[in-house]
Nucleic acid binder design. Structure first.
Length: 152
DNA sequence: GCCAACGTTGGC
DNA sequence: GCCAACGTTGGC
């Protein structure tokens, strides 16, 4: 069982969207970065736990936890010409991008803000707080996971 | 809305 | 395979 952190803009998909539909699987689509895709495809597994991180919003930080309920499959949005995630260079024979499904686990008692994440020495190695990092899917070590839980 | 830092594209 | 130009991310 591994731990991850997924970034999302809460205006698109927030932890409250998860919390409001606790029995519904959320399709994590639209990952269009190869490094992130490779992790989704090759390393993210059923029952892994995921920190949901809110970016580009008022209160930036880790907002809650979700769990992987379906491993990587062809991201449907890449075939949908009406979608912002449409990729004309992808094909059903050779899909370029993958999605996974998540379900709600919990909201953290308080959002662990980016400020807090940055000021914890134990999180120096977390890709999120490293300069220029733009990964939207990143691994979290068990130690980092516990540290972030404690910060909440 | 700005802009630094990356990632991707495409000509050569 | 280099690298300039361009597009995107995401905090501020």
């Amino acid at each position: 069982m591994a731990y991850w952190l997924f970034k999302t803009e809460p205006s698109e998909c927030s932890i409250d969207d998860f919390a409001n539909a606790p029995d519904t699987a959320v399709v994590w689509e639209g990952v269009r970065n190869y490094q992130a895709r490779n992790m989704l495809r090759d390393q993210v597994r059923q029952d892994d736990l995921v920190f949901i991180y809110h970016s580009s919003c008022k209160l930036i930080g880790v907002a809650g936890i979700a769990r992987i309920v379906r491993e990587a499959y062809a991201d449907p949005s890449q075939f949908d010409a009406a979608s912002a995630y449409f990729d004309e260079k992808s094909s059903k024979q050779l899909p370029r991008w993958v999605a996974v499904d998540l379900v709600f686990v919990e909201k953290l008692p308080a959002i662990v803000t980016l400020d807090k994440l940055k000021s914890s020495a134990k999180l120096n190695e977390l890709p999120l707080v490293q300069r220029g990092s733009r990964l939207s899917v990143m691994p979290v070590t068990p130690e980092q996971w516990q540290t972030i839980l404690q910060l909440s």
